[in-house]
Computed example of a mutant assay.
Amino acid sequence: MGASAKVRLHGHLDRPAELTVEQLRALPAHRVRVSFDCLSEGEQQHGYEGPALWDVLRAAGPRIDFTGRKQRLRFLLSVSGSDGHRAVVSWAEIDPEFGGRRMLLAASMDGAPLDETGPQLVVPDDHCGARYVSGVTAVWLGPLDEPTG
């Protein structure tokens, strides 16, 4: 990805954006120490620092009606990485009125900046590391439409 790794925020947002890791680092940061199981590398332990995914998306102006609660439950986030890996997260997981999980778009891992490789999605409560998306290139927000069939 080079020194100019960017994350594209798109979908149902009033202010879609492309943010560098440096711009993410300028947002209020949180630090977490995590342990998770990686299928290929076994138990992993890392320290991450970066903004909460909730804060990043709220700054982009999600087109979600916040006056009620139930309508928020149909929104999903798709987080894509540079290696093609993708994880889906429900809005309710990060919404403080529901799950309130503090997932991060980490700007550093173990004290090393992620400017060149891109930020990492960090899901601190997951025991399995599959939703830890490295080199995040895009975060999409949108509603799940009525299933057909």
Rank of each mutant, 00 (worst) to 15 (best):
G111T: 07
D95L: 02
Q44E: 08
P96T: 13
Q23L: 08
A106S: 05
A106F: 14
R101G: 02
T117G: 14
E49D: 12
E93N: 14
L39C: 11
P96K: 12
R69D: 13
A87Q: 04
S40N: 09
V88M: 13
G81C: 03
R72Y: 04
L53D: 00
D115T: 12
E18S: 11
K70T: 12
R25H: 15
Q23M: 04
S80L: 01
L13A: 10
R69Q: 12
G99C: 06
G84H: 11
P124L: 09
G100A: 08
G42R: 07
A87I: 08
L114W: 11
P62E: 06
D37N: 15
H46W: 14
D115K: 11
V79W: 04
F66E: 10
S80I: 00
M109L: 13
T67P: 06
L53Y: 09
F75T: 03
V79P: 02
A26N: 07
A107V: 10
A92V: 06
V56D: 02
L121R: 02
R15D: 09
D14M: 12
K70Q: 10
A112T: 13
D95C: 08
V34M: 11
V88I: 14
L105H: 03
P16L: 04
G81K: 08
V34Y: 02
R74K: 10
Q45S: 10
V79K: 02
Q120H: 13
P96F: 01
L27H: 00
L57V: 00
T67G: 11
R102E: 14
W91L: 11
D115A: 10
F36K: 09
E41P: 05
V122I: 07
G111N: 01
L76W: 04
S82Q: 09
F66K: 04
R102Y: 07
W54G: 01
Q120C: 05
P119H: 04
D110T: 06
R58Q: 15
F98A: 06
F75K: 12
P51E: 01
V34C: 13
L19K: 05
V89G: 01
A59W: 00
R74L: 02
H46A: 11
L53H: 04
P51N: 08
E22P: 02
V34L: 15
V122D: 02
W54P: 01
S35M: 08
D55V: 11
V89L: 15
A52N: 00
A107I: 10
M103Y: 15
V79H: 01
E116W: 13
Q45M: 11
